[in-house]
Design a protein around this nucleic acid. Structure first.
Length: 270
DNA sequence: ATATGCACCTGTGTGC
DNA sequence: TGCACACAGGTGCATA
């Protein structure tokens, strides 16, 4: 479900809501995620305080002090909601983290593609090979463009590769390529210098715009206090097959590839 | 290095 | 109405 703008929106509200909270208990009802939850390891959280909530790529990183973190990836369908402890368990609520003050963090994930893991931050291999953060001031656009033009892969595949750049998923990959005027199936090594530069420039612009609107909500993404995002109204191509391009009125095309869909405008994107 | 297929799951929408 | 199928915001592995 969530890509960088959605995860960052969730991070901000969780950081506000959880900072300083003490973890009273961790109740795992269903450990069988795609990678099973190590229940005893989660027990290390009990009694600690949340010092802050950070983010790396699409991972939320809960700092619980003493060098220990808890990382949480929401996969396709995961949600984290702050609820009163007394609230009934929702459907597909696999974990509930009980906090002081009568509150709890509920993790719901129908498809169970998410990941929840506790460890020292430098021991977590999930975070090891991730590429640069595109919304960091230090994002090296020129370096990224160089790297993009050095691969023979399709640019869409490269944008989705978290080792190349962190946080982009299927929606924003299509949107970024529309704004850069490049078709998703173009090969990196065949891009002109300007193409690479336009893609590199579009990445922080599109992700930043989406973040400013608190992400994209279709049916089931909401942040931790239940607010939907607003970027779906701004989507130029994603999920708009057959609809007129907002810029030139040509019909938006869809192309399935490796089980995923790309959307593009045949006239605006070369 | 890259591509492809599949696996992990449930829910929803579509067409018959 | 039921049924079959396609598809969904993500990742990881096995095999070429």
């Amino acid at each position: 479900m969530p890509e960088l703008p959605e995860v960052e929106t969730i991070r901000r509200s969780l950081d506000r809501g959880l900072r300083g909270a003490r973890i009273r208990a961790v109740d795992v009802r269903e450990p069988r995620l795609r990678r099973p939850i190590d229940v005893p390891a989660l027990g290390r959280l009990v009694g600690r305080r949340v010092a802050g909530v950070g983010r790396r790529a699409k991972y939320l990183v809960f700092d619980v002090g003493g060098g220990l973190v808890w990382i949480h990836h929401l996969g396709m369908s995961g949600r984290l909601l702050l609820v009163p402890s007394a609230a009934e368990r929702g459907e597909h609520e696999h974990v509930r983290v009980e906090l002081d003050g009568g509150r709890a963090l509920a993790y719901r994930d129908p498809r169970r593609f998410g990941l929840m893991r506790v460890g020292r931050i430098d021991e977590l291999e999930e975070l090891r090979d991730l590429g640069p953060e595109p919304l960091d001031a230090a994002f090296d656009a020129a370096g990224f463009a160089r790297r993009l033009r050095a691969t023979r892969r399709e640019v869409k595949a490269a944008l989705l590769d978290q080792r190349v750049v962190a946080g982009i998923g299927n929606i924003y990959a299509s949107e970024i390529l529309f704004h850069a005027g490049v078709r998703p199936m173009r090969r990196g090594h065949r891009l002109r210098r300007e193409d690479g530069e336009r893609i590199a420039a579009a990445i922080p612009r599109v992700l930043g715009d989406a973040l400013a609107r608190r992400g994209t909500s279709f049916s089931d993404y909401f942040d931790s206090d239940g607010t939907p995002g607003g970027f779906q109204e701004m989507l130029a191509v994603f999920d708009r097959e057959g609809s007129p391009c907002r810029r030139c009125r040509a019909r938006i095309r869809r192309r399935a590839h490796g089980g995923r869909s790309s959307f593009y405008c045949p006239r605006c994107q070369a």
